[in-house]
Design a protein around this nucleic acid. Structure first.
Length: 347
DNA sequence: AAAGTCCCGCGATCGGGTTA
DNA sequence: TAACCCGATCGCGGGACTTT
């Protein structure tokens, strides 16, 4: 037979309520009694029955962390930081959605079933109307059930008003700064290998890019912008294929921006295969400043997002350890990191 | 003030009983 | 015989209240 709270209570010669108070710490218990209870816990090797506890409290000690793919450093760094910040009091469950909105909804339902204490949803939101609505509704349900939802790198607008905290990334600002940097170096024809078209992150980064172009009168018409932009997944292969496509469309390119660092490395690989020098013939920039970016050859110019700090903040918000930011949302600033992969174009 | 008692509630499940 | 309804059960948290 499993040891229950009642067994501990009998052994410590106290009531079950007292044992519960000692273990939860939600109620003051005299030191001597407390010690006796803890001794009994130790002697019986008692551990709280999680499901029963969740049954009684209508919440569990489970925290869901939704990521596209833990193997992708962008998400791995965040998942790791969330788990570190949670410490040993909560059980982090990392769910790989593969970027699929259906799977995201499925995982949110499973977490709802478990009465998770909190859910941290990382990464961009899909903007297709039906998924956006379904996802927002699911977040609303979680909130109504007492689960604290935190959006990490996803706009607050992806959840119903007041149902979640949002730690947003300065994607627009970062995209703008990156392109400003290229323009200031003298680049005028800048290609862009963007992420999937229906993602908020993709849109925001692209909007920043275009804002910078517009500010310098380089925006051109929509057709021109479209010609210099290709879409694909946030992957190395997408960068590789995208760069070849862009070179084909516009041989006069002097710079190419990748939607993230992995894409940028793919772009670099394609350019090198074409015999082009980086940054001599063409400049390349990425986004995120993942650990490998500084060690790439040449070192990658990118936009740094403090993922670790942002994820730690999200975890604290999830646990109620940090006060709600103004309006329930916090903007993580993006910082330009200029390295060797960008330079002035040849005259 | 500290500790105890009592009891409700949480929600899925299952056995037993009733009805169609 | 299927379809249903009812009540008990699991282990715990916590509120209200009483006793020491």
């Amino acid at each position: 037979m499993a040891v229950t709270l009642a067994d501990v209570a009998a052994r410590a010669r106290v009531s079950a309520a007292t044992v519960s108070r000692v273990l939860s710490g939600n109620y003051p218990v005299a030191e001597a009694t407390r010690a006796r209870v803890l001794a009994a816990v130790d002697e019986l090797d008692y551990v709280i029955n999680g499901p029963a506890s969740a049954l009684a409290a209508a919440t569990s000690d489970l925290v869901g962390v939704l990521v596209n793919d833990v193997a992708d450093p962008f998400f791995g760094i965040m998942a790791s930081a969330v788990q570190s910040e949670l410490g040993s009091e909560k059980l982090a469950v990392v769910c790989n959605t593969g970027g699929s909105p259906e799977r995201e909804l499925t995982y949110l339902t499973l977490l709802l079933r478990q009465r998770a204490a909190a859910v941290v949803i990382t990464g961009s939101a899909v903007e297709t109307p039906e998924y956006a609505a379904a996802s927002a509704a699911k977040v609303g349900r979680l909130a109504a059930n007492g689960t604290q939802v935190v959006l990490l790198g996803r706009p607050a607008s992806a959840a119903p008003e007041g149902s979640a905290f949002a730690v947003e990334f300065g994607n627009r600002e970062g995209g703008r700064r990156l392109t400003e940097h290229l323009i200031s170096l003298g680049h005028r024809r800048i290609g862009y290998v963007a992420g999937p078209a229906d993602r908020t992150t993709t849109r925001h980064r692209l909007e920043g890019h275009r804002a910078a172009l517009d500010a310098h009168g380089l925006g051109g018409d929509a057709g021109e912008l479209g010609r210099l932009t290709v879409h694909g997944p946030y992957s190395r292969k997408s960068g590789y294929d995208g760069a070849l496509e862009l070179l084909d469309r516009e041989p006069g390119l002097t710079a190419v921006v990748g939607s993230n660092d992995a894409v940028a490395l793919g772009i670099c690989a394609a350019l090198r295969e074409k015999g082009l020098d980086i940054p001599g013939d063409i400049s390349v920039a990425g986004f995120d400043d993942l650990p490998f970016s500084a060690d790439a050859t040449p070192a990658l110019t990118t936009v740094r997002l403090p993922l670790q700090e942002a994820a730690a903040r999200a975890a604290r918000l999830a646990l109620g350890r940090e006060e709600s930011p103004a309006g329930g949302r916090y903007m993580v600033p993006a910082e330009l990191v200029a390295r060797a992969s960008t330079a002035a174009p040849r005259a």
